[in-house]
């Protein structure tokens, strides 16, 4: 069944049409991709349910996680345009390497522009630019089981999901409030999908949780734990909370110092040895697009603003 990847890439691809014929398209063999696609379809049919799959070794450094890469490999077609982000950025080692990996093994076009991508693989963020029905967002997930830290036994957590026995999840939030006066969880904040399964939305900031109900398909892959799960388009996703401690997705009360955006998720960056710091959009593409359009922040170079 091995089919050289090069055969499937059209000649009109300019940048990355040269694939290595030593690999099947997108590295994984067709049988493995079919197995992963079956898990993806099952995941889409049962939103939020963790589908077991036979995870494969991928040629990646340990610790990068391979679940997202395997889901991307099974999802890509030769006509896709791939974007890879890590912590919102296209230019981290991890993002660059995965992008190169699929350029080499699948010959697909790549982009940093959210709007131009058909498949976006991400770790830790949902892009600021709203996604559409024509896009697929693939998450790299380290720990898929939201109940894991409360109940280490896999047999027991599966039973809890099956029976919707989710009291323990609220115990975790209760403990947070008891210890910190508020729900301190700011990443991987648990959600209930379509009124049924409690799900860990991978370590995205809780600021991104409201975006989980979106037009695009969302696929989650955990390689080491061998689980795939999914949120189909327009599926209700509710962040867990208490009536008197409602979910609060707010972020640092600050605007981006480069582009002036006051609605985007910000990273705090130390800029000099004197401890100077600035807030910048974690989504590098979003920030760049705004600056290209002439938007400026409090710490933008003064000359640049005049040019626009």
């Amino acid at each position: 069944m091995m089919r050289p990847g090069g055969d499937r890439v059209g000649d009109d691809r300019t940048e990355a049409a040269v694939t290595d014929p030593a690999y099947n398209f997108a590295y994984l063999d067709e049988q493995t991709k079919r197995m992963i696609r079956r898990a993806i379809l099952k995941g889409l049919a049962v939103p939020g349910y963790q589908v077991p799959f036979a995870s494969r070794e991928m040629p990646m450094p340990y610790g990068w996680g391979t679940g997202g890469v395997q889901v991307t490999a099974a999802t890509l077609t030769p006509d896709d345009t791939l974007k890879v982000i890590d912590q919102g950025a296209d230019d981290t080692t991890n993002a660059v390497s995965i992008r190169k990996f699929f350029q080499k093994t699948a010959g697909v076009a790549v982009t940093e522009r959210t709007a131009d991508a058909t498949v976006i693989q991400t770790r830790h963020r949902i892009p600021e630019h709203p996604l559409t029905e024509d896009q697929i967002l693939v998450y790299q997930v380290p720990i898929p089981e939201p109940l894991r830290f409360l109940e280490p036994r896999e047999t027991e957590t599966r039973k809890m999901h099956a029976l919707q026995d989710y009291g323990l999840m609220h115990v975790k939030l209760y403990e947070d409030i008891a210890q910190n006066g508020a729900i301190a969880k700011s990443y991987a904040y648990p959600v209930k999908v379509s009124g049924r399964y409690v799900m860990d939305p991978s370590p995205i900031p809780k600021f991104d949780n409201p975006k989980l109900d979106m037009p695009a398909i969302q696929l989650f892959g955990a390689g080491r734990e061998q689980r795939i799960y999914a949120v189909p388009p327009y599926t209700p996703v509710v962040s867990l909370d208490f009536e008197d401690f409602p979910f609060d997705p707010s972020k640092a009360d600050h605007a981006c110092d480069l582009c002036g955006a006051d609605t985007s998720y910000l990273d705090e960056v130390i800029v000099d040895d004197a401890g100077g710091r600035m807030f910048v959009c974690s989504d590098t593409d979003f920030c760049g697009e705004r600056r290209d359009a002439g938007h400026r922040g409090a710490m933008s170079p003064p000359d640049a603003a005049v040019q626009a």
């Binding site: 409360l150 026995d165 989710y166 009291g167 323990l168 609220h170 115990v171 209760y174 403990e175 409030i177 008891a178 210890q179 909370d241 208490f242 009536e243 008197d244 401690f245």
Partner: peptide, 26 residues
Amino acid sequence: RMGVSAGGNIGERLMAVGARHYGDIR
């Protein structure tokens, strides 16, 4: 649950049957 506070231990059954008001549970 040895890793959960006394209050959380008592509150678990309440939360399991749908209690969602922190103040009431406490």
